[in-house]
Amino acid sequence: MGTCNIDHSHEDVVKKLESQEKFLPVNLTKQLETFLREEHSQKTLNELFHLFKKYDLASKTEQEDRNKQLENLIS
C-alpha cells in the first residue's frame, strides 16, 4: 500500500468499513466498530481507510497481514 495525500474523514472510514465488513473476520469488525465510536487522529483514520480499501480483492495472505495491522492499530 502506497502513501496517499488525501485525508479521509471519519465518515469515509466508517463507510469503507461497512463496505468491506462482510469480508473481514466478525470479531475484528466488532472491535473496529467500537474503536471508531471514538475520535482518532487523521493519521489513524488514513491508515484504517487504506487497510480497508480493496480488502475484498486482496489475497488471503494479504488479508491476514492487513488483519494483523488493523489489530495493532486498534490495540
Rank of each mutant, 00 (worst) to 15 (best):
M1I: 08
M1C: 11
T3H: 08
T3N: 02
C4R: 08
C4N: 11
C4Q: 13
C4E: 04
N5Q: 06
N5K: 14
N5E: 05
D7W: 05
D7K: 09
D7F: 08
D7M: 07
H8K: 13
H8R: 11
H8I: 08
S9D: 00
S9P: 01
H10Q: 04
H10A: 02
H10N: 05
E11D: 14
E11T: 07
D12H: 06
D12E: 07
D12M: 04
V14G: 04
V14H: 05
V14S: 08
V14Q: 05
V14L: 12
K15P: 11
K15G: 05
K15Y: 10
K16Q: 15
L17Y: 06
L17A: 09
E18W: 10
E18C: 08
Q20K: 05
Q20C: 06
Q20P: 03
Q20H: 06
E21W: 14
E21R: 15
E21Q: 15
E21A: 14
E21T: 13
K22H: 13
F23Q: 15
P25M: 05
P25V: 02
P25L: 03
P25Y: 01
P25K: 12
V26D: 14
N27H: 09
N27T: 08
L28V: 00
T29M: 02
T29N: 03
K30I: 13
K30G: 03
K30D: 08
K30L: 08
Q31R: 06
Q31D: 04
L32N: 00
L32M: 03
T34W: 01
T34P: 04
T34F: 05
F35E: 00
L36W: 00
R37W: 02
E38N: 12
E39N: 12
E39G: 12
H40C: 03
H40K: 10
H40W: 08
S41E: 02
S41L: 01
Q42K: 14
K43D: 00
K43L: 09
T44L: 07
T44A: 08
L45T: 15
N46H: 11
E47G: 02
E47H: 11
L48P: 01
L48S: 02
L48Y: 01
F49K: 00
F49D: 00
F49C: 03
H50K: 13
L51V: 13
L51Q: 02
L51G: 03
L51R: 01
L51K: 01
K53S: 13
K53D: 11
K53N: 11
K54S: 11
K54L: 12
Y55Q: 04
Y55S: 03
D56C: 12
L57R: 15
L57Y: 13
A58F: 01
A58P: 06
A58C: 10
K60T: 06
K60F: 02
E62P: 05
E64I: 06
E64K: 03
D65Q: 15
R66S: 09
R66N: 03
R66E: 10
K68V: 15
K68E: 15
Q69V: 14
Q69H: 07
Q69L: 09
L70Q: 00
L70S: 01
L70P: 00
L70T: 01
E71G: 02
N72L: 09
N72Q: 12
N72H: 04
N72A: 10
I74S: 00
